Computed example of a mutant assay.
Amino acid sequence: MDDLTGFQRDLLYVIAGAEQPSGQDVKEEVEQYYSDAINHGRLYPNLDTVVNKELVEKGELDRRTNYYAITDEGEELIEDRREWEEQYMDF
């Protein structure tokens, strides 16, 4: 996960916590966390990055809407990250 930005990591967590969310679903969830609007020029290139790294799978819900699903590799990366974080959390 060391080659992902914090934003890309947040996208992974959102996608992992949802059942095949659309890009719009991911956008809305991330906007709630960031308390700021996320534009398409930021969202979709970063979604493409995690797809290209094979951490997320992209599929079609219909002709206009894609879905995103975490891959096994993406889940493993999140798990490794959480284990790494836990060693520093003493509360």
Results as ranks from 00 to 15, higher is better:
6 G>Q: 08
69 A>V: 15
4 L>S: 00
69 A>F: 07
84 W>E: 12
51 V>H: 02
2 D>H: 09
42 R>A: 00
88 Y>S: 03
91 F>C: 02
43 L>C: 02
48 D>Y: 05
29 E>A: 12
20 Q>L: 13
71 T>R: 02
90 D>E: 15
67 Y>S: 00
45 P>V: 00
26 V>H: 04
10 D>K: 06
87 Q>V: 11
55 L>C: 08
81 R>W: 13
62 D>F: 15
27 K>T: 05
38 I>F: 04
3 D>N: 12
88 Y>P: 00
75 E>Q: 08
69 A>M: 12
24 Q>I: 14
6 G>W: 10
81 R>K: 05
74 G>C: 11
65 T>L: 13
7 F>V: 04
77 L>C: 09
34 Y>S: 04
30 V>Q: 03
40 H>E: 09
9 R>S: 06
88 Y>V: 01
75 E>A: 06
49 T>C: 09
36 D>S: 12
47 L>M: 12
74 G>E: 14
59 G>L: 15
89 M>Y: 11
41 G>M: 03
64 R>S: 07
73 E>C: 03
87 Q>T: 07
68 Y>N: 02
35 S>K: 11
80 D>G: 01
15 I>A: 06
19 E>F: 14
54 E>W: 09
63 R>A: 08
29 E>W: 07
35 S>H: 12
73 E>G: 01
28 E>T: 07
49 T>M: 05
57 E>A: 07
39 N>H: 05
1 M>Q: 04
78 I>C: 09
31 E>F: 06
24 Q>L: 13
78 I>R: 09
77 L>W: 06
90 D>N: 11
75 E>V: 08
34 Y>A: 03
30 V>H: 00
3 D>S: 06
63 R>D: 15
29 E>Y: 08
10 D>A: 13
11 L>S: 03
70 I>A: 03
64 R>A: 05
86 E>P: 03
70 I>V: 13
29 E>K: 10
48 D>M: 08
72 D>N: 12
